[in-house]
Amino acid sequence: MSKLTAAFTKGKAFIPFIVAGDPDEDSTVSNIIAMAKAGADIIELGIPFSDPVADGPVIQEGDLRAFAGGITVDAVFDIVAKARKQVDTPFVFLTYANIPFKYGYDKFCARCAELGVNGLVIPDLPIEEQDEIRPFTQKYGLDLIMLITLNSGDRVPALAKKAEGFIYVVSSEGITGERDEFDARLSGLFNEIKKYTDVPAAIGFGIHTPEQAADLSRFADGIIVGSAIVDIAAKYKTAAAPEIGKYTEAMKAAIS
């Protein structure tokens, strides 16, 4: 079983996200360690991209702070190498297609495997275009994480069947006003996914509070939180680790 899938076997998984290099390398290492100690089941690290079109303003600003701190792709690998010495939690990278493409898919995937990164989330590499990287993720044993949304419709079977590691169910915050209908559509989507795969499905869609996490974990196998943690990083800057740790603990407790 993949290390990412295995992270879901002990109950509902909590998957926090931070931007690598926000605001500097050492803080990111401390934040990763804090999240791992607080019970994170998988840690998602964003490799900043100049034009993160799939991210909202909070994460875009996190990327900008990381660039201001001089982040590079090799520096992100250095962060992972340092953190890996102290934590055993599985890692996934979230980044845009141009980053691994430009680094060279082979070289990028090799480096990930060498440092113990277990999977890749690449929002702008949809299933139609994944064939160009898949030979390399397979060669090095990385899971290519499939994204599924409320818009996916009749694409769900094909996406679910190709899934590995875990599935990232993503939706926009824009529709949270219609809460009841939204819940019904989401639980319907999870039921649909389960028809085609045993790969666990986690949800990330602007979840902030332990209450929301508990609520969504009724049907989701895991909870992914990005913006709320990047907000803490923004507020506490180089001293965010204890706060991020506390938050992670509360969220993990809410879904346990």
């Binding site: 079109v53 929002p123 702008d124 949809p126 139609e128 275009e129 818009n151 419709g153």
Partner: peptide, 12 residues
Amino acid sequence: GGQYLPEILLPE
């Protein structure tokens, strides 16, 4: 060329 877009836009 190609269609390198997030899944949320692909169906559209």
